[in-house]
Design a protein around this nucleic acid. Structure first.
Lengths: 231, 231
DNA sequence: GCATTACGCTACGACTCGTAGCGAAAGCCC
DNA sequence: GGGCTTTCGCTACGAGTCGTAGCGTAATGC
């Protein structure tokens, strides 16, 4: 099963993909893509094998020592096949890591605090995986100089998480735990702020401080997020 | 002027550094270091030129395309000189980026909120520099698989910032804006939490969301940090 | 002067990169 | 089945980077 961003392009985008000069959208699509096409189809098995091999290589070698030739060997495909499907290491790793975050959900635990603690713990668990740690931050670093890559990360990782923030806020407002927003623009800014605070804190805790974001830490974090430092 | 972590090793550490097999401390020290030594001394001018050239190359090329050979050329030194002083790209970039954060300070602005806003804005300004963005996150990603590198980052970047948190909290407690901590262990945890929340949010806003952490954002962030989401 | 260390320079094997070219395989459509 | 189209595996290649070795020279302390 190929990754969502590849098999199912964002609705209303990329109806055709013949041209391929600058790495606009990292993943190379099957040329001449109007839904139907003739010829031998791409192996979906290879897709899964390549992404799994990429994660495996990330664990064993880390970002800097990961080579596409090595990934190809692990996946049992030719190196050229990799270059036919992805523009380079950056795009490949984004897709490989993005799959890890697909399972993020926001189960209703009855209160805003419990909801936050639950989803933050999920996020922290994923981020504790070595392939997530070394892979994700490396591509984020690369994305500072690559607009298309940043967009790719946003589409396949960030938006997925941000939706959880929106959902959690809606739920909390229905419970009366949060005041309704005055206008939509202000609501968007608040969502962005919360998202940066939550994801940023977990990432910083895990990667920079190199300490586990365990239950105790998550409880403290949630308390400050909801009630501030003063209490 | 060589960087602090090199010229002035952490007090009570590294009194001798003759052996050099695994990259224990990234920066290679002058072999046989017991304070005095004979022979031609290392050029301090070269140190500054190399670190400046590294930042320049980070801006123009980014992390992945930065090569030590190129840095050497820009700095006007031989490539071998670079390898005599640093273990590799990671350590060099850490030192080059660390200098950017040396100027961080915590001026007394009269209230905890104002203090936080001031220092967060400083941090955001530095992090907005392209050399800081691409350089810092790349080495953090590498540090997930390199304990020594992580320690190097901690010593030359993170601790510097964390001290500001401690100072700000002390100041706020003296003003009566924050309650005193019950025990030292709890106090340490709180400092770590705040630090991860502040630095993490700014980093995430700047790098992942790719939006500026401007005054308006900082004000909103500070409000949530101090009083929580409920208000 | 002498010992010692840093420096600039050149050269080197090993490795990775990304691509080109080929024949074979695997699907659609007639 | 026959033809068309696209993908696949494989090999080979030039280009570029890596990190080091070796050498003669420069700069300091004794």
């Amino acid at each position: 099963m190929p990754h969502r961003t590849a098999g199912t392009p964002p609705p209303g985008d990329l109806p055709h993909g013949a041209r391929w000069e600058p790495p606009v959208y990292g993943r190379k699509m099957q040329s001449r893509s109007p839904a139907s096409r003739t010829g031998r189809p791409r192996s979906a098995t290879a897709d899964a094998a390549i992404l799994a091999a990429t994660r495996e290589a990330l664990v064993e070698l880390g970002w800097s020592k990961l080579t596409l030739g090595d990934v190809a060997t692990r996946a049992g495909v030719a190196k050229t096949t990799l270059y036919r499907r992805w523009a380079g290491k950056n795009e490949l790793v984004v897709d490989a890591v993005a799959e890890l975050f697909d399972e993020l959900e926001l189960p209703d635990r009855g209160s805003l605090a419990a909801d936050i603690e639950g989803v933050v713990l999920q996020f922290a668990t994923i981020l504790a995986l070595p392939e997530a740690k070394s892979g994700l931050m490396a591509v984020v670093a690369e994305a500072t100089r690559d607009e298309a890559l940043r967009e790719r990360i946003r589409a396949s990782v960030v938006d997925h998480q941000k939706r959880l923030v929106v959902e959690g806020r809606t739920r909390a407002q229905a419970r009366g735990e949060l005041p309704p927003e005055p206008d939509p623009a202000s609501a968007d800014r608040t969502v962005d702020l919360i998202f940066d605070m939550v994801a940023g804190a977990v990432v910083h805790r895990t990667l920079v401080s190199a300490e586990p974001a365990d239950e105790e830490w998550v409880r403290s974090f949630t308390r400050v997020l909801l009630h501030g430092l003063g209490t």
